[in-house]
Simulated scan of single mutants.
Amino acid sequence: MTGPLISPRELRDLLARDDDAVTVLDVRYRLGGPPGAQQYAAGHVPGASYVDLDTELAAPPGEGGRHPLPAPADFEAAMRRAGVRADRPVVVYDDWSGHAAARCWWLLRHHGHDDVRVLDGGWSAWLAEDGAVAVETSAAESSEPGDFTAQPGRMPAVEADQVLDVPVLVDARAPERYRGEAEPVDPVAGHIPGAVNVPTTTNLRADGRFRSPEEIRALYAAAGVTGEEDVAVYCGSGVTAAHDVLALELAGIPAALYPGSWSGWITDPTRPVERG
């Protein structure tokens, strides 16, 4: 496999050749939606293990925002439970336009696993292309635990005290949240001063799959994101921002993640807020 994405057909072919050729992680999640574990139990990609975003891909909420990065030891334990191995590729999918899957992709890459792909189009694309569906009640099908060792630092990240120094800061939220016209989740509306807005919806075609690298480069360039200067991305809680990081990787533009994002930024009332 090459690149950060894999198509349903490519995944189907991999699984058909060898059940042990790839580790599949189901990270279905929707903010305010039905629990992903219930969706997993109702049907999932054969051999997939379920990973919970709130408890395994994030630490408890606090000064670091609504979804702080998990402690490396906790993330390592979660990935081992899910059967992740250092020598085996990983494919991650969700049913939330790739947002949760991108978070897991970023975390695995950040903690040292270099062979990770997001299923392009997610669960709906898998079903649309007649992918097989398994139904079990266990949230982890792996017959044996993985051996993944977390070694954080492989993907760039910035903290709150560095954010204002980033030459190009991207806000991945919806435009109305960026402008401060509406804030349905966090207690303060607005954005970090100097940030430009490139919503994650920009990254996808109408069918829910990622745009081509050429299209992504052009759309980001229109917002001043060209890769000529360092780039960092944030969102509401550090989850959907990983979607922009993944899209920028497709376009050949490296970008750092600000994990605390807006929900972490506003925990300190002395930090500046911009609207409009």
Rank of each mutant, 00 (worst) to 15 (best):
S237I: 15
A247L: 10
R275I: 13
G252V: 14
C235Y: 10
D244H: 03
L250V: 12
S263K: 08
P254E: 10
G260H: 05
I253M: 05
R275N: 04
G276K: 09
V239W: 02
S261I: 12
T270K: 04
V239M: 07
G238H: 12
G252K: 08
A247E: 01
V273C: 02
E274V: 14
R275G: 02
L257H: 15
R271F: 04
S261F: 12
E249W: 05
D268W: 00
G264A: 03
V239N: 04
G252A: 09
A255C: 10
R271G: 03
G276S: 14
T270G: 00
W262Q: 06
A256E: 05
P269T: 02
E249Y: 03
G236L: 13
P254V: 07
G260V: 10
P259Y: 13
G238R: 12
A251C: 06
S263C: 09
T240K: 08
P269Y: 01
G236T: 13
G236W: 09
T267E: 08
C235H: 07
E274R: 15
A255L: 14
S237W: 13
D244M: 09
A251M: 06
T270Y: 00
I266S: 02
E274I: 15
P254W: 15
H243G: 03
V273R: 01
W262D: 06
P269I: 04
A256G: 09
W262I: 04
T240Q: 09
R275H: 06
R275A: 08
G236F: 07
A241R: 11
A251W: 01
W262H: 04
G264E: 01
A255Q: 12
R271K: 04
S237K: 15
